[in-house]
């Protein structure tokens, strides 16, 4: 109370005089700076500053870091940087660098990586290997089918009863990860790998979207790019699906590990291929 310290805090006309005079410009410049920080955006360069001014700006950064939640990396940033680092490591070996230059990703190399996103990407790439020609094309609104007639085999992935109308069920096999959907017109299946870089999507039942953990890609339940996706990535390829004997079957690439487990498909009941 009334101490010298307190007077020092009060705003008096004396502050505008003397060798250490503060100017209104300085107040406003720092204020603009703080507001930029509060928006989490890069502030304007303050220009040539004295070290005292630099320390003032530093103090602003330090205190901004104390705003609750501000100084935590966002999950999207964390996973996208991890993906970049995976590529960085991959590029250090010539063979992998070559693959990277061609736009492909080494499944084995990424599997060896063992990180979550990389592992996810790797399984996606197993899918990707069958759709390489499509991923090279620019994003479009058309939707391709993963495996054409005759090239694959039918595999049972769910019973009809376990997926209610509107429900979505994930399935994973040696060759493919995908989702089976129960729509008003029957059962459909979609590839579960993001068409951006092959990371594995997860079903977001609340928003009814397929979300990618790597770069925030989003697809609606029909597999088309959804609002909120950073880029309108190509639609998810369809996987042929059918219902037979109370079971949902999907048509996937033949696994190299088995031979003739293909199921006869002479009765494609409920099978739709839009």
């Amino acid at each position: 109370m009334g101490s010298h310290d307190d007077e020092d805090n009060l705003i008096s006309p004396e502050d505008a005089k003397g060798p250490n005079a503060e100017t209104v410009e300085q107040y406003l410049r720092l204020h603009d700076h703080i507001e930029r920080l509060r928006e989490d955006k890069t502030p304007q360069k303050p220009g040539k500053v004295t070290s005292e001014e630099a320390r003032t700006y530093q103090a602003a950064a330090l205190f901004r870091a104390a705003t609750p939640g501000a100084a935590e990396p966002s999950p999207a940033f964390a996973s996208s940087l991890r993906t970049r680092l995976e590529h960085e490591i991959g590029a250090s070996s010539p063979a992998r660098a070559l693959r990277a230059a061609r736009g492909g990703v080494s499944r084995r190399g990424l599997l060896a990586g063992g990180l979550g996103a990389a592992a996810a990407a790797a399984v996606g790439v197993a899918v990707g290997s069958t759709i390489t020609h499509e991923s090279a094309k620019p994003p479009g609104s058309w939707q391709t089918t993963l495996i054409g007639d005759g090239a694959g085999m039918w595999l049972a992935v769910a019973t009809v009863g376990e997926i209610p109308l509107g429900g979505v069920k994930r399935f994973a096999t040696d060759a493919v990860v995908g989702f089976v959907r129960h729509t008003s017109s029957g059962f459909e299946a979609l590839s579960g790998a993001c068409t951006h870089m092959g990371c594995l999507l997860s079903w977001n039942a609340g928003a009814r979207t397929f979300d990618c953990p790597c770069h925030g890609g989003r697809f609606n339940e029909n597999g088309k790019a959804a609002p909120g996706s950073p880029v309108a990535y190509s639609p998810l390829p369809l996987i042929k699906a059918k219902v037979e004997a109370g079971t949902v079957w999907v048509y996937i690439a033949k696994s190299p590990m088995e031979d003739a487990t293909t199921t006869p498909s002479n009765n494609p009941n409920g099978y739709r291929n839009p």
Binding site: D40, T42, A60, A61, L62, R64, A71, E72, P73, L115
Partner: peptide, 23 residues
């Protein structure tokens, strides 16, 4: 990466005070 991302990010954030530059 996994063990250090948060602590390094926080350190850098405390030096720049905004997400764009911190990232």
């Amino acid at each position: 990466y996994e063990d250090n991302l948060h602590v390094i990010y926080r350190f850098i954030y405390s030096k720049v005070g905004n997400r764009e530059e911190a990232e």
